[in-house]
C-alpha cells in the first residue's frame, strides 16, 4: 500500500505514460484507485474536447447541406446522418478499427514549408487518432441533426428582416442565421456534449487497444474491479468523476448559452434542460 502522495507521483499522469510503468497489483489502496482513475480521465477529456471542437464545424456544414435545395448536397448529408445515428457507436468503433487495420501501412509526407511532418496510417489503429475520428464523425452526425432542426425553426421574420436590410449570402449567414441557429440548438447541443463525453468510455472497450495500459477512467476502474474482485469501490469513484465532469460541461455550456441569449428579455431565454439520451 502506498501513501497518497506517492500514489499521485506514481500514477497521476500514468494514463499518458508518465510515472510508474507497472499498474498496482497487490495491496491496492483507495488512493491508488482514485489517482489512477483520475489520470484516466485525461483521455475522456481529450476525446470529448477534440471530437466536439472539430465536430462542431462539420456538423454546421452538414446541417446546412441537409437544409440545401440541391439534391447532391442534401442526399449525402442525409445518408451521413442516417449512417452514424442509426447504428450503434460500439459497432462503428469495431468497424472503423478493422478498416484502419487493413489500410496499407504507409507514411505520407506533408510539407509545411518550414518543416515536413510524416503522417503514418498506422496511427489510425491507435486510439488517440482512430477513436477520435470515429467520435468526431459520430458527434457531427448527432449535432448536425440538432442544428438542422434549429435551422428549420429560425423565425421567418428574422430572415426577411435580413433580406430587407440588404444582407445576403455569407453575411446573412454569419450575422443572422448562424447565431440564431446556435441559440435555438444550444440546449440540445449541451445534451449532446454530455452524452458524447459519456460515450468516450467505450473507446477502450471496443477494439482499440490501450497501448502500454494507457487507458481512460473506465478502463482503470474495470482493471481495479477485476484485480480486487470488488466493484463497489472503483465504479463509484469513476461515477463521481463523471458527475463532476458533467456538471462542468453544464456550467461551461450554460455560460455560452447566456451569451447567445443575452439580447433577449429574461423570460424568453432558453433554459438548459438536461435530458438523458444515453448510448448512441
Amino acid at each position: 500500500m502506498m501513501s497518497c502522495s506517492d500514489a499521485i507521483l506514481a500514477y497521476g499522469l500514468r494514463a499518458i505514460g508518465i510515472g510508474e510503468r507497472l499498474l498496482p497489483k497487490h495491496d491496492i489502496g483507495l488512493c491508488e484507485q482514485v489517482v489512477l482513475i483520475g489520470s484516466g480521465l485525461i483521455w475522456n477529456i481529450y476525446f470529448a474536447f477534440f471530437a466536439l471542437l472539430l465536430g462542431f464545424f462539420l456538423a454546421t456544414a452538414i446541417a446546412l447541406a441537409k437544409a440545401s435545395d440541391r439534391w447532391w448536397l442534401r442526399k449525402p448529408a442525409e445518408w451521413f446522418i442516417f449512417l452514424f445515428r442509426g447504428s450503434p457507436l460500439f459497432i462503428q468503433f469495431f468497424f472503423a478499427y478493422e478498416l484502419f487495420v487493413l489500410l496499407p501501412k504507409v507514411g505520407i509526407d506533408i510539407p509545411l514549408g518550414f518543416t515536413t511532418i510524416t503522417v503514418e496510417t498506422r496511427w489510425l489503429t491507435r486510439a488517440w487518432l482512430g477513436a477520435l475520428i470515429v467520435l468526431f464523425l459520430n458527434t457531427s452526425a448527432y449535432a448536425a441533426e440538432i442544428f438542422h432542426g434549429a435551422l428549420r425553426a429560425i423565425p421567418k421574420g428574422d430572415i426577411e428582416a435580413a433580406d430587407a436590410y440588404g444582407l445576403s449570402g455569407w453575411r446573412r449567414f454569419r450575422r443572422i442565421i448562424w447565431p440564431t441557429m446556435l441559440r435555438l440548438a444550444w440546449p440540445s447541443y449541451t445534451n449532446e456534449a454530455i452524452f458524447l463525453t459519456h460515450a468516450t468510455t467505450l473507446v477502450f472497450f471496443s477494439s482499440f487497444p490501450a497501448w502500454r495500459q494507457e487507458g481512460d477512467a473506465l478502463y482503470y476502474a474495470s482493471y481495479f474491479a477485476e484485480k480486487t474482485f470488488n466493484p463497489f469501490v472503483s465504479y463509484p469513484i469513476v461515477a463521481v468523476y463523471f458527475i463532476v465532469l458533467t456538471l462542468t460541461i453544464i456550467f461551461l455550456f450554460g455560460r455560452i448559452n447566456r451569451r447567445l441569449n443575452r439580447h433577449l428579455p429574461r423570460a424568453e431565454r432558453a433554459r438548459l434542460r438536461i435530458r438523458p439520451r444515453l448510448l448512441r
Partner: peptide, 15 residues
C-alpha cells in the same frame, strides 16, 4: 444523467 450508462452496465451484473 451524470454517469455514463456503460459504467452501470459493467457495475450492475458484477455487483
Amino acid at each position: 444523467r451524470g454517469v455514463p450508462d456503460i459504467i452501470f452496465f459493467l457495475f450492475v451484473p458484477l455487483a
